[in-house]
Simulated assay, not measured.
Amino acid sequence: MNRSSKGLLVSALVVVVAMAFRVSWNALRDVARVIGADATAAGLYPFVVDGLMALALVAALVLTSMRDKRFALRVLAAYTLASLVLNYVHGLVPALHDGAAGWGRLADWDPANWALVLLATSLPVGSIYFGCELVAKVLHHRPTVRVQTDSVRADAPAHPPHTVTPPPHADLSGPPPLTAAPVPGQVSRGAEGVRTGDPHTPRTARTPDPDAEEEGDRQDQFEEAELERMRQDARRTYAESAQANRPLSARALGAAYGMSESWARKQILAARGSDGLAGPHLVAVGST
């Protein structure tokens, strides 16, 4: 729908609401006169009831919190029902329009009359309270920042293309090497799907990624270096304890390094072989 159509629709809605308010204004003014309002107060009474209905409707459209929106809709429903009841009473009692009705008489049955008078006199007080509450909720309303977040994401710069930097000792005097343009992911995936779907195209075995192999080799070398460092530390610890005449047992050495007893026994043997820490041995003495 274009802008002119929207403007025409809103204008028609305003005209219909204005005419409906004029019809309701006649009934509410007569009810206000019966409950004791003067001419000025009776003329303003319809604005108190129907005006708060319009305010509650606007607040329900503006507020985004479900709790506040539910409150505005409840106020709108309550005042709509109250206006409907008073308009209905005005239609049933023609004396209200002629001014022949008695003071404070909206119905012949006393309980109904008391309820109607209580309803008509409480609507202005309720308008003050509910109107202030709705305005406060609208003024303290904070719009969501979802649109701002999306705009920030949209304005964020794209990742720069990958560039290959030459090694520090490369010869830059010759012509620059030719580099292939990066292929987008969607295009490459689409082309790969076409190649694999062609029955006449020979299938080639996948070659492992060299980067992954190098990373695995580096990880293995690192783990082996850590194990070797642990072995050297264990041997040094045993050698120091042996020099202090308090050699550690295989169980104690393995527990100190979180390893098994057999692993610790191997390190003890290696430490004895490297440092010449031989255990006590018997020497045969010949007779002279």
Rank of each mutant, 00 (worst) to 15 (best):
M1A: 14
S11F: 10
V16K: 05
A18F: 12
M19K: 04
F21V: 03
V23D: 09
A27L: 00
R29W: 12
V31S: 02
V34N: 11
D38Y: 06
D38Q: 07
A42R: 10
P46R: 12
V49R: 08
G51M: 07
L52S: 03
A56R: 06
L57P: 00
A59D: 03
A60Y: 10
R67G: 10
D68R: 14
R70T: 12
V75W: 12
L76F: 15
A78E: 15
Y79S: 01
Y79T: 04
T80R: 08
L81D: 05
N87Q: 07
N87K: 08
V89F: 02
H90S: 14
G91C: 02
V93Q: 08
P94Y: 06
L96C: 12
H97V: 04
D98E: 10
W103V: 07
R105Q: 09
L106H: 11
W109G: 00
W109I: 02
P111W: 12
P111G: 07
N113Q: 06
N113T: 01
N113G: 09
A120D: 01
S122H: 14
S122Y: 09
P124L: 11
P124A: 05
P124W: 11
V125N: 02
G126Q: 14
I128L: 15
I128E: 03
I128R: 08
Y129C: 00
F130G: 00
V138Q: 08
H140P: 00
R142I: 10
P143F: 15
V145Q: 03
R146F: 08
R146H: 07
Q148D: 07
P157S: 03
T165A: 05
P168D: 13
A170D: 06
G174C: 04
P176Y: 00
L178P: 00
A180R: 06
P182N: 07
Q186G: 11
V187L: 09
G190L: 07
G190N: 10
A191I: 07
E192W: 03
R195Q: 06
P199V: 01
T201N: 01
T201C: 01
R206E: 10
P208K: 06
P210T: 14
E213D: 01
E215D: 02
G216W: 15
G216D: 10
R218M: 02
R218S: 04
F222K: 13
F222S: 09
E228D: 13
R229K: 15
D233S: 15
A234H: 13
R235E: 12
E240S: 11
Q243G: 13
A244T: 10
A244Q: 15
R246D: 15
P247K: 15
S249W: 01
S249M: 05
R251M: 02
A255Y: 01
A256K: 13
A256R: 14
Y257W: 03
S260A: 14
S262V: 09
S262H: 11
A264S: 09
R265P: 00
R272W: 06
D275T: 15
G279D: 12
G279I: 08
P280D: 06
L282H: 13
V285M: 02
V285N: 03
G286K: 10
T288Q: 04
